[in-house]
Amino acid sequence: MLREKMVLGKAPSRSANMTSDSIFKILHLQNSSADSSSHYDNNRSQISSNKSGDGFNSIEIAGIASVAALVSVVALLIVYMYARKCMASSSVESSEIQGVTIFVDIGVPLSYDSVVRATGNFNASNCIGSGGFGATYKAEVSPGVLVAIKRLSVGRLQGVQQFHTEIKTLGRWRHSNLVTLIGYYGSDTEMFLIYNYLPGGNLERFILERSRRPVDWKMIHKIALDVALALAYLHDQCTPRILHRDVKPSNILLDNDCNAYLSDFGLARLLGNSETHATTGVAGTFGYVAPEYAMTCRVSDKADVYSYGVVLMELLSDKKSLDPSFSPYGDGFNIVAWASMLLQQGRINEFFTEGLWLDSSHQYLLETLKLAIRCTEEQLSKDQE
């Protein structure tokens, strides 16, 4: 991980590489300055404790006027050092019932028949979402026990053996901001994954419906930080590391307290070399794919960071990544170009969703938007994978 230097209050630079870990640190610093909370330190401990080595990554921050912010840097580094302890082994014991492999015991036996029956034989009335990999169904496997079943498009995957290998690897990883992979089933004719059910829907719906509920800066900041934590874990703590390749609002799920969980991680590895689940020609969704990735089809963690930056912009504004209102600006104009244009023209208050600019700290909003712009302005490194 490269050292990061961010000068708050100045225009973003392309000279330094933005990583998911540095995103976390910047957002955490921001949170520490406004409202200290053990929630973030506990999550950071979960990431940091799986690392090995003598050194640790840090970011150099200059130009911060607030003394409290400078003090929080020291506090953050102390917490980060203290959190570097050994984790328990990441190996997960699994069991199998009627072809269903179980990673997490939820207290209810899960078999192929019971899962299919709980979805109403994958009835459309139980469908709660669909995407490039397949549709997701809500299933009550026992009274009061709900799970989410992602039924995969069998014909688009690399094969049953590869499927088993990849999913068993994914089943090893646990993080409080990743959806939990409870188990899976795979055969030549049927494949599905079993996840914990999250009642808050996805971030896409949250953004569309936020005019109906009070949404403050603290809630938005928490969601952004949760997703950054998940990406930092996938990029830095998993071996082999996991590149998501399709970070977007519909792949970020929420519980009733607006805690955020990243879903569909690792699934892009199941696609064949020539397969895609979007119109970009690469794994990803148009509007969230880094231009360098779309042109070269060579992916690194910087592609996820770009997508995260776009999601962060959508979370702050009332625009979509490819909003219809951008059409007067011509083809290729997106939320990234819009944010940069408003920043250069000194009209940045027009970027933020209604009420957010009036009710929140302008400093924190501006810093967060500049962070999002930095994520999207980074070019992919030369050592792409």
Rank of each mutant, 00 (worst) to 15 (best):
Y293D: 03
E314I: 00
K302T: 15
K319S: 07
T280F: 08
E275M: 09
D264Y: 06
L315D: 05
S300E: 03
A303K: 01
A303S: 11
A278V: 06
T280A: 13
R269Q: 05
S300L: 12
L312W: 02
Y261I: 03
T276S: 15
K319M: 10
Y288L: 11
L271M: 14
E292G: 15
Y261P: 09
T285W: 03
T296W: 05
V310H: 10
M295L: 09
G281F: 07
A278P: 05
S274L: 10
S250W: 10
Y261A: 10
K302S: 14
K302I: 14
P291I: 05
V289D: 00
G281K: 07
S325H: 15
L262M: 11
S300K: 03
M295D: 13
R269P: 12
L322M: 14
V289S: 02
M313W: 12
A294M: 11
D264P: 14
R298I: 10
G287T: 10
L270A: 04
M313S: 02
M295S: 11
P249L: 08
L262P: 04
E292R: 13
H277I: 06
E314H: 00
K319G: 04
A278Y: 03
T285V: 05
Y306S: 00
V299D: 02
A283K: 02
L254H: 07
G266I: 03
L267D: 01
K302W: 04
D257R: 12
L254F: 06
Y293R: 02
E292T: 09
D323M: 08
L267W: 00
E292H: 11
T285C: 07
S327P: 12
